[in-house]
Amino acid sequence: MTDFRVAPGQVHEDQLTASIEKHTSQIPSSLYLGAALAAMVASASFHLAKKEHPALFVCQWAAPFLLLGIYNKLVKQHGSDGTTRVSI
């Protein structure tokens, strides 16, 4: 059986990715959680106003906001490429 895992330090991120992560890591993780909660509240408001299509559309924003928050947290903990540690 072939092992396709990438070993730590085997692959490095490019400078564009590192630059984006440097700037986005300064955003607090609570902002992403707040955005997800706001999307849920907005969706519930649309639903109560009997606007089903906007309610479903806005409701789908919560998961990407939470995923961005998780990614943000991982970048803060492990750095851009997993071989460096970011001191915060």
Rank of each mutant, 00 (worst) to 15 (best):
P54V: 02
A35T: 07
T17K: 06
V58Y: 05
A62V: 02
A44G: 05
P54A: 05
I27F: 05
K22Q: 10
A49K: 15
Q60R: 08
S19A: 12
S25C: 08
A42G: 15
L37H: 01
E21C: 14
A42W: 08
A18H: 08
P54R: 03
H53Y: 13
A55H: 04
S45P: 08
L31T: 12
L37N: 00
I27D: 00
A49R: 10
L16N: 10
S30R: 13
W61K: 08
A36P: 01
S43H: 06
A62L: 06
I20S: 05
A44I: 06
S45E: 09
A49G: 08
M40A: 11
G34I: 00
K51P: 01
T17R: 06
A55C: 01
F57M: 14
A35S: 14
H53W: 11
H47A: 07
I27V: 10
H23F: 12
S30P: 03
S25M: 09
L37R: 00
L16W: 05
I20C: 03
I27Q: 00
E52K: 11
A44M: 06
I27R: 00
Q60N: 12
A36K: 02
H23D: 05
H53K: 15
F46H: 08
A42Y: 09
A42I: 09
H53A: 10
A42Q: 09
F46T: 05
H23A: 13
A62N: 04
W61E: 10
I20A: 06
S43F: 03
A42R: 10
T24E: 01
V41A: 15
A42E: 12
W61D: 10
H53R: 15
I27S: 01
L16V: 11
A44E: 10
S30L: 04
A18W: 03
Q60M: 14
K51D: 09
A42V: 09
Q26F: 13
S25D: 01
E21A: 14
P28E: 01
P54D: 07
L56G: 15
M40H: 11
H23K: 13
L56Y: 14
V41K: 12
A49I: 05
C59L: 14
T17Y: 07
A49V: 04
K51S: 05
A35C: 15
Q60H: 15
L37C: 05
G34R: 03
K22Y: 11
S45G: 14
L37Q: 03
V41H: 09
S19G: 13
A44N: 09
T17Q: 09
F46P: 01
A35V: 06
I20D: 01
K50F: 09
P28I: 00
A49S: 13
A49T: 07
W61F: 15
A38D: 04
I27Y: 04
K50L: 11
T17P: 00
S29M: 03
I27H: 03
L48D: 13
H47R: 07
S25I: 07
A35Q: 10
A55L: 02
K50R: 11
L56Q: 15
A55K: 02
A49M: 12
T24G: 03
L48K: 15
G34V: 01
H47G: 07
